[in-house]
Structure formats: structure tokens, C-alpha cells
Write a protein that binds this DNA or RNA. Structure first.
Lengths: 98, 98
DNA sequence: GTGCCGTTTTCACAGCCTCTTCACAACCCG
DNA sequence: CGGGTTGTGAAGAGGCTGTGAAAACGGCAC
């Protein structure tokens, strides 16, 4: 699965940025995978939470936001200046290479 | 849902003008969706308010008017010169492509 | 069991964005 | 004209998001 300079191989628990492996935790990789499977689309917190955490989203839960922040940090370390994860206020997040 | 050069996909939180995504807020998208679902018909403020705000319309509330103005601005940026939202004095608003 | 260590979850606060309301201008119609 | 209706910029309040840090959790070695 490829999005811009990102390549994700969920079956190998592996994510690459410009060919270099990212050091991600399980949750981080699951979240990135969920976004990558839906790249270009806006995905709600509800959908992300239900897919990654495999349980009903409790409103006011901030887990998704916290992990989005961590992914952004790691992606920015690997690929400075690129903005892969976009926030859509009131809707959710979107992964894309532009 | 298509009206002229507008395409609206509420389930994806997305509205396109000539294929390009519009940057809308939640309320703006809800209002545009409500108008699009009724395109070609005159829709009263009461109806728009009850659908989008999900509560009883208080007369003299100007929220609908303010959001119509914002939608017009954003639609005109995306599709200059086109007039999609028409005012029917004393009755309400109507969305159409002519 | 106990201690360690990396991960996950929760909390708190700051900053930002949107929504609502207001005020005044412009407009419509008798 | 005159009175009601609509257009719209601006501002404050409230809600949403970003994020560092603390607390809770869980696996592993001893």
C-alpha cells in the first residue's frame, strides 16, 4: 500500500518512509494503516476508533487525536516538511500525499 | 447528488464544484445538502432550520441567512459568476443550476 | 511475586476554528 | 417613500483540536 513516499505493509508490521522503516508501535501502525486504506478520504474519529480499537467510540475520547499527533511527529522526523495527515475540523482526518 | 456542476456526498463529508472539493464547515455542508436534496424547489427558513439545526425555528433568527451568504461566497469562489442559490422574497431559498 | 521498561490511556491546558449574534446597509414591494 | 425583509462584516463565546506529561497497563526476566 503506497501513499506518496509512504509504503505500508500491514502483514509485515512494517511502514517505510522513502524506503526507510519507521519505528511505530502497534497502535500507531494500525492507525496509519486504517488511514492509508482510506487515503484521500476524510475519515471520522468514530470510524478510526472502531477500526483500530475494535470497540464503540465514546465521545470525548481523545485517543485518536493523541495517536494522530504521534504519527505526525514520526512522519515529520522521517519526511520533514511534508504534511501527510490533514485535519478536517468537525469531520475527522485525511491522509494524502499533497 | 448532483446539481449542475455541484456534486455533494454527505456520507463522505464532501462537496465538489467542477470536481474540486469545497472547503466547507459542518453547518455549511449540512445546509448545502438540505438545499441539494430539495433542489429546484423553494425551501422556507423554517424547513431549513429544522433540518439543519434540528430544533424549532425561532422567528427573527438569522442563522440561515448568514450561512446562505457564506455558501454563496464559497460557491462563487469555486464557480465565479454562477448563481446557484436564489432568494425568493418572503418565502425562502432555492438551489438550482440555472 | 517483584521490578523494569515500553506502550497505551488519560488528563490538563493552550490555541485555534466555528457558530451565533449583533448591527447596519441594502433591497423589495406596496 | 416607508416598513418589513434580506445581505453581510465583525466580534465574543463556546466547542474542538494539538500536545506534553502523568498515570495505568502488560509482558518479561529474575
Amino acid at each position: 500500500m503506497v501513499v506518496g513516499e509512504l509504503e505500508i505493509r500491514p502483514t509485515e508490521y512494517l511502514a517505510l518512509a522513502s524506503g526507510r522503516p519507521l519505528r511505530l508501535t502497534v497502535r500507531e501502525l494500525d492507525l496509519l494503516t486504517a488511514l492509508a486504506e482510506r487515503h484521500g478520504r476524510i475519515v471520522s474519529r468514530e470510524e478510526l476508533y472502531s477500526v483500530v480499537w475494535e470497540e464503540q467510540y465514546r465521545k470525548a475520547d481523545r485517543s485518536v487525536d493523541v495517536y494522530i499527533a504521534r504519527l505526525r511527529q514520526k512522519l515529520d522526523e522521517a519526511l520533514p516538511g511534508r504534511a501527510y495527515i490533514h485535519t478536517h475540523f468537525g469531520f475527522g482526518y485525511r491522509l494524502s500525499s499533497d
